[in-house]
């Protein structure tokens, strides 16, 4: 569709009264484009407020937008756009009108306390949260946010310290957590993580420790500690015998030796490029390094 089709003088879509069709078109837009579309005219603004468009807000789309001039996907890349992002967050979350179930922060976004609290207060019905890599929020901000997100069921964390106050905040305010995911930021998932997890999410059903280093003791601890556990994702993880020992890739038969047979079915691991990361061919980690052999 080239621009020669432009209808500038004709007003071809002015008599376009079916809001359903506009909503169907808007379904294919990301969060930034939706916000822009809402400013076109009153009818488009009304269409942009439809709850079905706001079930999920993926702020990683900010990367691709000319509006924020973010060239590189690097930590701290957002610092120069802070004012813009605060403004944008407020507007987008007013359009969503509290209908958001899933909020994904950019992996490298460097949010301020104010932005974090703005997001939390305007998404009270949140079920799934993906936190940014650099968690530099104050204790007060974390507790304020988690208080708003009392109904959270799933959370993805991408930082190193299990003693961070986020765990105590989750334990205090979020009683429905059944899914925890640890992303690339973690250095090593070991026993102290299991203890922290047990305090904040005793009813855990799914745990993802993909693409990170994990101790065998921690993995065994996960299976013995959580009664309701249904799945543990260890795709592209490096499973080591002792904390901070030499790096080594352990095959799945070795892992299974340490676990009772009843837990074999709960393990999710990458076998010959079968996982989503392999299928999407993402190059966060060089291919094959963390692949578990069977």
């Amino acid at each position: 569709m080239d621009n020669s089709n432009s209808a500038a003088t004709t007003g071809v879509w002015n008599d376009f009264r079916s809001i359903d069709i506009i909503i169907t078109i808007l379904m294919s837009l990301n969060v930034v484009d939706l916000a822009v579309a809402s400013l076109v005219c009153k009818m488009w603004n009304k269409a942009c407020r439809d709850p079905s468009l706001w079930r999920k807000i993926d702020l990683s789309e900010l990367n691709n937008s000319y509006l924020f001039n973010i060239q590189n996907n690097k930590p701290g890349a957002y610092k120069h756009s802070r004012g813009k992002i605060t403004q944008f967050l407020k507007y987008v979350l007013s359009l969503s009108n509290g209908n958001t179930n899933c909020l994904i922060f950019n992996y490298n976004v460097d949010l301020t306390d104010e932005q974090f609290i703005i997001a939390a207060e305007r998404t009270p019905n949140l079920k799934r949260l993906v936190l940014p890599n650099t968690c530099v929020f104050s204790r007060k901000a974390v507790h304020t946010a988690m208080k708003s997100w009392g109904g959270l069921e799933s959370i993805t964390i991408s930082f190193d310290d299990p003693n961070k106050y986020i765990f105590s905040a989750i334990a205090e305010y979020c009683k429905n957590i059944t899914e925890m995911k640890f992303s690339h930021g973690c250095l090593l998932f070991e026993e102290n993580y299991v203890e922290a997890l047990l305090k904040c999410a005793p009813n855990l059903k799914a745990l993802s420790i993909r693409c990170i280093m994990t101790s065998m003791g921690a993995l065994c601890g996960v299976f013995t500690s959580f009664q309701h556990l249904e799945a543990v994702n260890i795709c592209h993880s490096s499973i080591i015998d002792a904390p901070y020992s030499d790096f080594g890739v352990v095959d799945i038969t070795y892992v299974q030796k340490h676990l009772p047979p009843s837990n074999y079915g709960k393990l999710i691991y990458c076998k010959e490029g079968s996982c989503l990361r392999c299928k999407n061919d993402r190059s966060i980690i060089p291919a094959g390094i963390f692949q578990i052999t069977s």
Binding site: M1, N3, N5, S6, A7, A8, T9, T10, G11, V12, W13, N14, I21, T24, I25, L26, M27, S28, L29, N30, V32, D33, V36, A37, L39, V40, C41, K42, M43, W44, N64, S65, Y66
Partner: peptide, 27 residues
């Protein structure tokens, strides 16, 4: 069709979208 139309307005300014669709600004 929705995908094609959405593609035309992805990463575009408010003015562009108005011009493209010939939508009158009623604000």
């Amino acid at each position: 069709l929705s995908r094609c139309i959405a593609k035309a307005i992805k990463n575009k300014s408010v003015e562009f979208v108005r011009d493209y669709f010939g939508v009158t600004n009623d604000y």
